[in-house]
């Protein structure tokens, strides 16, 4: 039960982040909001990591791992968070967040293309539902240009 509550807390954290960003971007640029949010996240996560990391673990960090961490930094924070907040500024939280929620689909597709994972029936069913959801959300907005 505790694990599920913590996972729900994660959902609330991810879900509320874009809402706060949206309010912040009413007078600030998306790049500024992203930078401030990243600095805050870094401080908190660094503090938490010191609680869960033993000193000898830092010695295991080598060039190969650091290069991979560089890729994660670029993909997750430069492309992920910056474009997430910029899209929120352009189309609003309610339209952008469900699209960004399709992340696991792209993770599965990347794993299928680059890591030779198999396409299974649940992935196909999930993908079909996601595509239907995206069509439902985007169709009316693009037609009517409400924003």
């Amino acid at each position: 039960m505790f694990g599920i509550i913590i996972s729900l807390t994660a959902s609330i954290g991810f879900g509320s982040s874009s809402v706060f960003a949206k309010i912040s971007m009413q007078k600030m640029q998306s790049g500024t909001t992203t930078l401030i949010s990243l600095i805050t996240s870094t401080i908190i996560t660094l503090f938490v990591s010191t609680l869960f990391t033993q000193t000898e673990e830092y010695n295991k960090l080598n060039i190969e791992i650091l290069m991979l961490l560089f890729y994660i930094g670029v993909l997750t924070y430069f492309f992920g968070r910056l474009l997430n907040y910029t899209s929120v500024q352009y189309i609003g939280v309610n339209k952008a967040t469900p699209i960004i929620g399709t992340t696991p689909l792209f993770a599965s597709l990347t794993a299928i293309i680059f890591m030779n994972e198999k396409i299974t029936t649940p992935i196909m069913i999930g993908t079909a539902l996601i595509i239907m959801g995206i069509i439902l959300i985007t169709r009316k907005t693009i037609d009517a240009t409400k924003y």
């Binding site: 189309i91 990347t110 680059f114 924003y147």
Partner: peptide
């Protein structure tokens, strides 16, 4: 609006590939 949706998809791709790495 169209640019906003494209950016949202690019963000999802960024997060998704980042998850795999």
């Amino acid at each position: 609006v169209i640019i906003g949706y494209i950016l949202a998809f690019m963000s999802a791709i960024g997060y998704g590939t980042g998850t795999v790495v």
